[in-house]
Nucleic acid binder design. Structure first.
Lengths: 192, 192, 192, 192
DNA sequence: AATGAATGAGGGTTCATTCAT
DNA sequence: TATGAATGAACCCTCATTCAT
């Protein structure tokens, strides 16, 4: 028996740039997800974060799931962009293993972001909605290395780095870069 | 009629074994967490799963967090036990890499459990409560391998397997055991 | 992502007579329905009418439909009781037609109640939930008259009175009792 | 390219026939009311049904009540038209009772419409807005019969048929036409 | 004149927690 | 000691209405 609303009096009604509002909400959504996790993400939290009224969330996104999905799409795109930038930087790298470790180190600098992305990545184990993001990461990363390492080593290195990042995230301890570089080198030698 | 025995007309209390009830609740909690995730775990769900009255949850665990923590402690202990069993089996293994992969393969058989443990493992990045579990896994696993591989290789192999399991979980695809075995072998060769 | 409730402070927590509360809620529900109609009946309105906190409504009745159904059950029972009283009074009546009209006249005295009952009666055309109430009325009324008028005339008289009451309700004009009595007499003569 | 004609890049307005739009909205309103009931009738539902933009509803009808009222006026007019057609057909009928029952039977064929009209008819007991519709039915029907049956019998027959239709609607059972015809005949005999 | 963006009140429901019994 | 009744905050979502464009 949905609500109605008697005589609401005066209401401001700002903006008028729907596209910007959609984007702002999606951005706010991903921030809230990063902070509280998907399960604690609410319309209210997203609206507050975006500095928009509550009604805006449901106006632009019929359900909370839609809102969350918009946030996830944003995160997925950011991940893809990240990987594209890695690709560029690895192309010009002389020593792949050390360049790779440098990239990962840098990536881990933004702890909040990494935590978000791994959260979503793992959550894909439960929630099919998140598969695209997980695949973006997994395949994107792998495709990055395959041309230089071959399929076998590429997979192994991706797993190694995935594990290392996960551990860094969980423990809060920085990567042991030299050791990691050595390990990558060992896995990569399959080629030779 | 009449008979002997106790007597009062009303005394709903069943169990007389408080410790057993605590344990039952903790066990139910971890099951609910495994099924719904921490965020969706409620008093009611745990009570229902344990077959105990709602009041029992707050009676034995002042807050929901306490109840969840009890579940987590249980999960941590289960993880430790798992690792102990691995230790026993690795001791008698001839070929460490293949034995290790076999263990991991088996472990991945119980998808639900693995998902739970990785959920909690990753959640430790956010929630200090979960550190003990994360450490139990990380150090326990590492300690398992160090005697045979040395510290450097042990860490690398743990990272590799952590990443491989994470990926198996997320993609739903089984491990590529031969490739994984090869990779471990390469990392382990640091010794020689 | 259901609500929770941080630290609610002190709360009164009255009563302790669940059965009484259930009944009070059902009674309040039927009153609200009588006043606003089913479609405008809300948890909040029922709780307010019953002088109980909002949470009581959902505590005793999982959904609003359940609450409404409880109200309807009450109304149905009241209707049955009304018909039983009619039965008693018709048994001792010398002249059936005029006794019948007198009953109907009296019944129409409580406009609010009649409006409620006809509302629900008609609503049964849409909502199967209300069938029991409609049948209680229709069959109860018919069964009342059959022994004295036979099946054919009983049906006709019930239809006539149903229509007359409906019209009185809608127009707000009192029954034309003498005319109605005459009409009943004519329909009843089928016997002779 | 370029061409002649109007020109502005943006001018979404379609129809140029305001009256037609008003009518379309009123028609859509009555359809929605028939389907969902007054209480569930919303701007959005009406706009969607009319294939018009949301803004059109409030543009042509300041409030939802106005929109609903417009629908009701339409329904009232339809009811009047129905009764006019009945008048024509009864004029040429040889046997009034059976002709009348035939008309009612036919009318009941369109269950949705009858339900709508009785809904509104009964709702008039609560909502003065609906009086015109109720009166249209009641007096229109009565006026139809009075010339042939006299005032007394006409009223009785209208009540009888009103009740019979109500019951058919509520129970979903078809009219018992022969019995009804007989009853009408009995009520009509007052003349002779 | 016409539209759809904007807003917030309200409504159903869930649940942590408190507490009388 | 043990239980389930009690409460209200918070949640998601719908929608009348207002208003910039």
């Amino acid at each position: 028996m949905g609500g109605s609303g008697a005589s609401p009096g005066r209401r401001p009604q700002r903006s008028r740039d729907p596209e910007a509002r959609r984007a702002a909400l999606a951005a706010a959504a991903i921030e809230v997800i990063a902070e509280l996790g998907i399960a604690r993400t609410t319309h209210r939290a997203v609206a507050a974060r975006a500095g928009l009224p509550l009604g805006a969330t449901t106006y632009y996104f019929p359900t909370l799931d839609d809102l969350v999905a918009a946030g996830l799409a944003l995160a997925t795109e950011a991940l893809r962009a990240e990987l594209r930038s890695w690709a560029g930087r690895l192309d010009t790298a002389e020593d792949l293993p050390s360049a790779l470790v440098r990239l990962v180190e840098e990536y881990l600098t933004d702890r909040r972001r990494v935590r978000l992305e791994y959260d979503l990545y793992l959550a894909a184990a439960r929630d099919p909605t998140l598969r695209p993001l997980a695949e973006a990461w997994l395949h994107g990363f792998r495709d990055l290395l395959e041309p230089r390492l071959g399929p076998e080593a590429a997979r192994a290195v991706v797993a190694l780095l995935d594990g290392a990042m996960l551990q860094a995230l969980v423990t809060g301890i920085d990567l042991d870069s030299p050791a990691l570089t050595t390990a990558i080198r060992r896995l990569a030698n399959s080629r030779s």
